[in-house]
């Protein structure tokens, strides 16, 4: 068929990855001093920045404090310069509201919310550059920022997307692959307990293939976890050293 060949017969994707390979991941914890916790992640050309504030007193008229747990407030946004075309993105449009809600749900599942009643945790994520898998990058960045902020959670949340082309599931789909209109499954999961915190699907996928795709996505999450884990450990030990020095 004409059009882009997402997966060559030799088994390479357009950018040279094999079907089950993630994009290059680069990440950093604690990029801002201002916030309680922050992290920056690059998954290929998708770049996301997450900051976490709190837990603090519930402010503003937005939500009422809950007597038994903390309110998690997520805000997702895309930078004007994040896509090909420079575009002013108003706060609170449908897409970002939806994304924010998804993020909120995801993190309510893993943060130990009962520890901080009557307070609020703010998680702000911004996509600095979008190249597919925005939600995944956001979740991963936010997880790191939460760890950086020292907010207790049950487990990491790692997210990874996967697509399905020519009977082969692809891990960590890029924008180019996403835009071809094939099915994309996004999974956020707690890698240790293998619980799925969020499952999202774009376009149709036959139920027979779901298992395959899901497997690839969770494999991607675990790979992601390995990378994040190494970075967190490294960060903690470096912090420890710098504390000792000072």
């Amino acid at each position: 068929m004409a059009g882009l060949e997402l997966l060559s017969d030799e088994g390479f994707r357009l950018d040279g990855r094999r079907p089950s390979e993630l994009r290059k991941i680069r990440l950093r914890l604690g990029v801002f001093d201002q916030a309680d916790g922050s992290a920056y992640i690059e998954q290929g050309n998708t770049k996301a920045l997450a900051t976490v504030y709190g837990p603090h007193e519930v402010l503003g008229g937005k939500g009422k404090p809950l007597h038994d747990k903390v309110i998690i407030n997520c805000q997702y946004s895309m930078a004007t310069f994040s896509t090909n075309e420079r575009k002013n993105r108003p706060q609170g449009d449908r897409k970002s509201t939806e994304m924010s809600l998804h993020l909120q749900r995801t993190f309510e599942a893993t943060i130990q919310t009962h520890l901080y009643p009557r307070s609020q945790i703010d998680i702000f994520v911004q996509i600095l550059q979008a190249d597919g898998g925005n939600y995944c990058a956001c979740v991963n960045a936010a997880t790191l920022a939460i760890i950086n902020a020292g907010i207790p959670m049950k487990d990491y949340v790692c997210a990874c997307s996967s697509g399905y082309v020519n009977n082969t599931p692809l891990t960590d789909v890029s924008y180019l692959e996403e835009s071809q209109g094939g099915p994309v499954v996004t999974v956020a999961m707690l890698p240790k307990s293998e619980q799925i915190a969020l499952f999202k699907m774009d376009n149709r996928l036959h139920v027979d293939h779901l298992e395959q795709v899901l497997e690839v996505a969770s494999k991607g999450c675990k790979d992601m976890y390995a990378v994040m884990n190494a970075a967190v450990k490294e960060h903690v030990s470096r912090m420890a050293k710098s504390m000792e020095c000072s």
């Binding site: 950018d15 040279g16 990855r17 390979e21 290059k24 290929g44 050309n45 090909n84 075309e85 180019l176």
Partner: peptide
Amino acid sequence: MLTSRSFVKKTRKGGVMKVVREHYLRD
């Protein structure tokens, strides 16, 4: 198994659209 350097490939299409894509090199 993957030692990839990330490369950036710029292509221009149509007007002045800049497309940045990853290009992985493998061994």
